[in-house]
């Protein structure tokens, strides 16, 4: 186990350096320049040069990268070229709103997906299974942008029951109830798609296990159906679900860019889009490296969970 973990840590480091290197050079080779977000700066080339010099953008690319890497090892993600503030500060300002939205959506999605996935598999071929399959097909097919606008039109415009934007009502005292009101529509949008995916995975996983000989044996032993289902079927059908859920965890961090835009949610997604469009190299680098690290860690977590769900899996 220890050598497995050591190997994975080394792989993680290689992946992170690779991701940062590729991101850094791709960003710099892409057309454009951070100062172009203010087209009027073109009017004074001398000021542009000084602006770049102050941000050390006039140095050769390899020197810039090396300096960024050294600072990263000290825990410094650099200073945003657009906001002139530490990137870490910009992330921590936006992360709570994103985690609130994406975390709630994940919980809601799982809350619906697990029972519906089980029901769909256990009642395979029935009216209920067909209805759930129809829902999952719709959930997977509906683009978030379209669903979001539709819900806004219905619940915010025509019925005026729920707000169309933001995460709280400005100008009134913050309350739990107010946050819930603002969360409903974006959470419905985000969780609809992911719940649909999870239902499909859970259903497929259960159907694969349900026909195995050991399930027949369990039933022949006279075990209660609920014991068969939860102890034997569900546990063994969890591996594909663990894979898909753990791979979606890193994206809790980056947020849901389209949904955040539609509902004017003040999270990471909008900021990442702006940072990319404005060639804010340190911000984009930091996000990519953090996401890469999370992907690697979540994969590692999934590997360890496989061993928990299926004792036949051993790591050396």
């Amino acid at each position: 186990m220890r050598s497995f973990l050591t190997k994975r840590m080394i792989q993680t480091l290689v992946v992170l350096v690779g991701v940062s290197l590729i991101t850094f050079f791709m960003m710099n080779l892409a057309p454009g320049d951070p100062f172009m977000m203010d087209p009027e700066m073109r009017m004074n080339p001398e000021a542009v040069a000084r602006w770049k010099e102050l941000r050390q953008l006039d140095r050769p690319l390899h020197e810039q990268y090396y300096s960024w890497l050294v600072n990263l090892l000290k825990g410094d993600f650099g200073i945003s070229l657009i906001h002139n503030r530490p990137v870490l500060e910009l992330i921590t300002e936006r992360l709570p709103a994103t985690l609130l939205l994406t975390g709630t959506s994940l919980l809601v999605a799982l809350l619906f997906a697990v029972p519906l996935g089980i029901l769909s598999a256990v009642k395979q071929g029935t009216f209920l299974d067909k209805w759930i399959s129809f829902f999952t097909l719709c959930g997977v097919s509906l683009p978030n942008f379209w669903l979001g606008m539709l819900l806004i039109l219905l619940f915010a415009y025509h019925l005026n029951w729920l707000p169309a934007s933001s995460l709280r009502t400005v100008g009134v005292a913050a309350s739990f109830y107010d946050y819930i009101k603002h969360l409903i529509l974006p959470v419905v949008v985000l969780s609809t798609g992911s719940a649909a995916y999870y239902i499909r995975y859970i259903r497929a996983g259960i159907l694969e296990v349900i026909g195995q000989d050991y399930i027949l044996t369990a039933r022949a032993k006279g075990l209660k159906e609920s014991t068969v289902l939860f102890r034997h079927i569900l546990r063994n059908s969890m591996i594909p679900v663990v894979t898909v859920v753990s791979l979606s965890l890193p994206f809790l961090f980056t947020g849901a860019m389209v949904t955040e835009y539609v509902f004017s949610w003040p999270g990471m997604g909008r900021w990442i889009i702006m940072a990319t469009l404005s060639r804010d190299y340190p911000s984009v680098l930091a996000v990519n490296v953090i996401v890469a690290a999370l992907v690697v860690l979540c994969n590692l977590g999934a590997d360890l969970l496989y061993a928990y769900f299926d004792p036949r899996i051993k790591y050396r």
Binding site: Y157, P163, A164, S165, T169, G171, V262, F263, S264
Partner: peptide, 22 residues
């Protein structure tokens, strides 16, 4: 007395909030 400068990138959402009196 007070001004709230609200950041709402979605133009449709802005419109609905104006119509709803928000």
């Amino acid at each position: 007395d007070e001004i709230y400068f609200r950041i709402i990138p979605n133009q449709e959402a802005q419109l609905i909030e104006l119509i709803n009196g928000d």
